[in-house]
């Protein structure tokens, strides 16, 4: 076996970009090695078998070799039956991919996040609780990066969250009881945070709205001043 050779590893394609005349550089999220950059030589030739295989949102078995930052794809095949995203859900898929591209470092393995990504795509494909699946994934991503939300207890007294209590969520710290009649800050009910911690069924719309804001601000803190392109494109599509 050649040095640095990896065979038939489950992975998803996050992004492709043309490279030279007939090749492309693909960014993949692999189960064992995390995010990777691969050169797929000749994969844009009209008769290349890889053209139809190298598509985002379906799990592939990839083989590659090489030791540098960019490795060479040696083979690719579909791992599972196509569970394709359709319609609006494609844009949710693009959003997930951009989050991973922006926040994961190359060759930093995240096997649990990989499993979560696969499950999220499956629920997107089925069209069940799309918004809630995205929230759970965002939370798992923060957790995987070491910036997980504090969903257990209040930061000052350390008391267990009260489902009916109203809290102010402080980024990088956690929930603190909101002052009566407070209207500023990231306000969130205890039951919303508990629902996210439990990762069970989707809570009501108010909870989901509150969590969407908390997660968005937390992600923005990591993304820095370069906004997500998928968000910009999506907002230009809404009329």
């Amino acid at each position: 076996m050649r040095q640095g050779q990896v065979l038939q590893t489950p992975a998803f394609i996050l992004h492709r970009q043309p490279y030279r005349d007939t090749s492309q550089i693909i960014e993949v999220f692999s189960q064992e090695q995390g995010r990777l950059g691969l050169v797929a030589r000749g994969s844009r030739r009209p008769k290349s078998r890889l053209r139809s295989v190298l598509q985002p949102f379906s799990e592939l078995l990839l083989s590659w070799s090489g030791r540098g930052d960019l490795k060479t794809l040696t083979d690719a095949e579909s791992a599972a039956a196509l569970m394709s995203l359709t319609g609006d859900r494609l844009f949710s898929g693009f959003y997930l991919n951009e989050l991973l591209l922006r926040l994961l470092q190359r060759q930093d393995p995240h096997p649990e996040l990989y499993t979560h990504y696969r499950q999220t795509l499956a629920s997107l494909a089925l069209g069940r609780h799309v918004g809630w699946s995205l929230r759970l994934f965002e939370s798992a991503l923060l957790e995987g990066l070491g910036y997980g939300l504090n969903l257990a207890c209040e930061i000052h007294g350390g008391e267990v969250l009260d489902p009916d209590g109203l809290y102010e969520y402080r980024i990088h710290e956690g929930p603190t009881l909101a002052r009566p009649e407070q209207s500023q800050g990231l306000l969130v009910h205890g039951r919303s945070l508990l629902a996210l911690a439990g990762a069970g069924d989707a809570p009501d719309d108010t909870c989901q709205r509150e969590l969407k804001r908390v997660l968005r601000v937390s992600l923005d803190a990591l993304l820095g001043d370069r906004p997500l392109k998928t968000r910009q494109v999506l907002s230009s599509m809404k009329h």
Partner: peptide
């Protein structure tokens, strides 16, 4: 084509 990751939108 629309390619949100490359910033290609409707415009």
């Amino acid at each position: 084509h629309l390619s949100p990751l490359d910033g290609v939108g409707p415009d």
